[in-house]
């Protein structure tokens, strides 16, 4: 056998080996994901019942349901959405449609990328200092929603910009050539066309926000409340914080209560975000420009 073929054979063996090694990495990732999902479903499902969803906690949160906690989370996310969507979409429009190519725009982009990397507990500190104390909103749903708004803003901005950039520029030109102003062209033509991308991206961002614990821990989430929040200035209970409390702060919680709570949280967040992600890729494939 010549050196050449021997070398080629060695190379082929190495290739097969490396394919195995990298494949093992993928397998490990998939197994981890399957384990997480499986463990939560298997341990969580037995605790799920209509009562669990629609009843109040009882016996020091060791029994009963998690209705006020689900409602609190939904209210918080809705309020956050109302705050972050207009701001984030407008900022995305700025970047995609108005921003000149200059240093300022570069700094804006850097800021957005950096905001996305700021630890969530730091957002919590910021919210505590500014919204709770300085603006005297107090520990409340509004303070938490404002904090989560800052945290979610980069996601909404980025997905809006990305969605707008997918729209070919010739339909903008067409609208302008018909005597539309820049804003009318954006508002009536470009924005509706980009809506699926914007909506799904925002849903992804908001579902992440729904799972955040650290920022709301210091800005308004309550350990326990006997009643539902009656205004945005009330404190509230929330799923991720409740799971933290059950897992680490309350002794002797029956496992089906804790796992049930984890199940509801993961199901809510991941079903919503996976539907959003799936729908987005379908939309991308469907509309060919």
């Amino acid at each position: 056998m010549s050196t050449r073929t021997r070398r080629a054979n060695t190379a082929r063996t190495i290739e097969a080996f490396m394919k195995l090694v990298t494949g093992a990495c993928v397998a490990l990732v998939v197994l981890t994901a399957v384990f997480i999902l499986g463990k939560i479903v298997v341990s969580g499902l037995p605790g799920i019942s209509l009562d669990f969803i629609f009843a109040k906690p009882a016996m020091g949160m060791r029994a009963g349901g998690i209705f006020p906690i689900i409602v609190g989370t939904l209210m918080l996310v809705t309020l956050t959405a109302l705050l972050v969507l207009p701001l984030g979409i407008m900022a995305g429009i700025y970047l995609a449609e108005y921003a000149p190519k200059n240093l300022l725009t570069r700094i804006v982009r850097l800021s957005i990328a950096n905001m996305a990397g700021v630890p969530s507990i730091v957002y919590g500190l910021f919210g505590l200092a500014v919204f709770v104390l300085l603006m005297q909103i107090g520990k409340s749903m509004l303070a938490s929603a404002l904090t989560l708004t800052c945290l979610t803003l980069p996601v909404v901005i980025t997905s809006t910009e990305e969605a707008l950039r997918q729209i070919p520029s010739d339909i903008r030109q067409a609208a302008l050539a018909l005597g539309a102003t820049r804003w009318r062209a954006i508002y009536k033509v470009v924005l509706p066309a980009a809506a699926p991308g914007i909506v799904t991206g925002s849903i992804l961002g908001l579902s992440r926000a729904a799972g955040e614990t650290a920022p709301i821990l210091v800005t308004g989430a309550a350990f326990f409340l006997p009643t539902l929040p009656d205004s945005v200035f009330s404190q509230y209970m929330s799923l991720p914080y409740h799971l933290y409390v059950l897992a680490t702060q309350v002794p002797n919680v029956p496992p089906e209560v804790t796992w049930g709570t984890a199940f509801v949280l993961v199901a809510g967040v991941s079903i919503v975000s996976m539907f959003a992600a799936g729908w987005r890729s379908v939309q991308r494939r469907k509309v060919k420009w």
Partner: peptide, 18 residues
């Protein structure tokens, strides 16, 4: 993509609990 999407979507408190 779906697997990664799922892993990214699981809240950190759930990872902590697991």
């Amino acid at each position: 993509k779906t697997v990664i999407e799922f892993m990214a979507a699981v809240p950190s408190v759930v990872y902590g609990f697991l």
